[in-house]
Simulated assay, not measured.
Amino acid sequence: MQILSRVLPESNARNGRCDDELDRLLARVLRINPCLQRAHGHEEHLRAALASSAGFLNRVVSQLPLPRVLNAQSWASDPCLRAFFDTTDQVAATLANARELTRIFQASRPPDHAYAVLAMEMAQSTPHLRACQTDRTALQKEIVDCLVDQLALEALGMIVTKADRRDMLECELALFSKRVAILKRLGIGMGTVVGSAPQDSAERRRLEALVDGSDHDLRGLGLLPEAFERQVQRFCSVLLRADRHIRVGTKPAPVDRSCGLSAVASAHAESPAPLTVFRIADNPSREFAATLVRVAMVDMPRPMNACDQPPRLFG
């Protein structure tokens, strides 16, 4: 009995954490497409699909390499970091532009270290530090959130394709197409990590107002109940096969960054470092390199100026 008294509360606590996570992820999905709430039994179906995708995504994120120390000294000795930066000046500039890191270190009781995702589109050469948190666990949670947003955004995009729009009038199709465009401009999903989210606060507020207006317009849709149920089916099909839409692997870091991360390392150059690469089956598909980093407050450029609040990520 004493054993059960210890085990059962622990099991209940785990189940409670799981339920809280699914509730939080469900709210994010419904924020992407509020029309799903108009389908009968949407919560049950979406929660089951989210349980599957969350399990996969949590495993993927937990297997990412340990955070690398990011500063001028580590850049000189870390081939992976040199794939993102050509010089120590670029390291300093990226740190100076990391508004979320600055906000964390300007808190009344700032931590000694913070964690972030260093990411860059494979075909570009501009690294970004985003999804910043005070501890590694919180950072991993935010990455999972962004990946779920990405899956939901992809499912919404599929709804406006020919295969899914047989129940829609042109005006209804236009509303969904407009919403997809606005969400992408806001950097929802992995756009937040790779730097496509707007940094200008006025532009963010304008786009967020457009999302709120889209919510209002979608509430007026006169689609048949079967159409909303098919939308839930589409979202569930994407969430249940998250491994088809988000793939994570490694590629050798290029020696020459002048052509972007898609450049191929020379066979006669130094041994390239493996880079973690995310492939997002968006339209079109995208690849970007990413690594977790740890930044010390003492390594942040001085002075640190006041900064805007980070982008709102649907909760």
Rank of each mutant, 00 (worst) to 15 (best):
E226H: 11
P198N: 07
H113A: 11
V160Y: 09
L223T: 09
A114V: 13
M158A: 06
V211K: 12
I188H: 05
D112M: 14
A174F: 10
E100L: 14
G189C: 02
K162A: 13
A197P: 03
L151G: 01
D212M: 07
A202F: 00
R130G: 09
A227M: 09
L139W: 00
M122K: 06
M158T: 00
D200S: 14
R130Q: 13
I188P: 05
A181K: 00
A123H: 03
A197Q: 01
L183F: 09
L169S: 14
R219K: 15
R130A: 12
P127Q: 04
G220Q: 04
K178R: 15
F105E: 04
E170T: 04
A174G: 05
V144E: 00
K184I: 08
D212C: 09
P225G: 12
T137C: 03
V117K: 01
V232N: 00
M190R: 01
N97P: 02
L169F: 12
T102V: 04
I182Y: 05
M168I: 05
Q124E: 12
P225E: 10
R219W: 15
D112K: 14
T102M: 04
S201E: 05
L151F: 07
V144C: 06
Q140Y: 04
L156G: 05
L173W: 11
S177P: 00
L169M: 13
C171W: 11
S108E: 09
R205D: 15
M190I: 05
A155W: 07
G189D: 00
L156C: 08
L223P: 12
A202D: 04
A163W: 06
S177T: 02
Q124H: 07
A202R: 01
L218P: 01
E172G: 11
M158Q: 04
V232C: 03
C171V: 13
E170Q: 04
R99I: 03
K162N: 14
E170A: 06
P225R: 11
D145T: 11
R185M: 13
T161N: 12
R166M: 00
H216M: 00
L95P: 07
E121S: 11
V194W: 08
L156A: 07
V232E: 02
D215H: 12
A209T: 15
R206E: 02
R165V: 05
S214R: 05
G189K: 01
S108Q: 09
R206L: 02
K141L: 01
I104P: 03
L173P: 09
E226A: 12
H113N: 10
D112A: 15
Q150A: 06
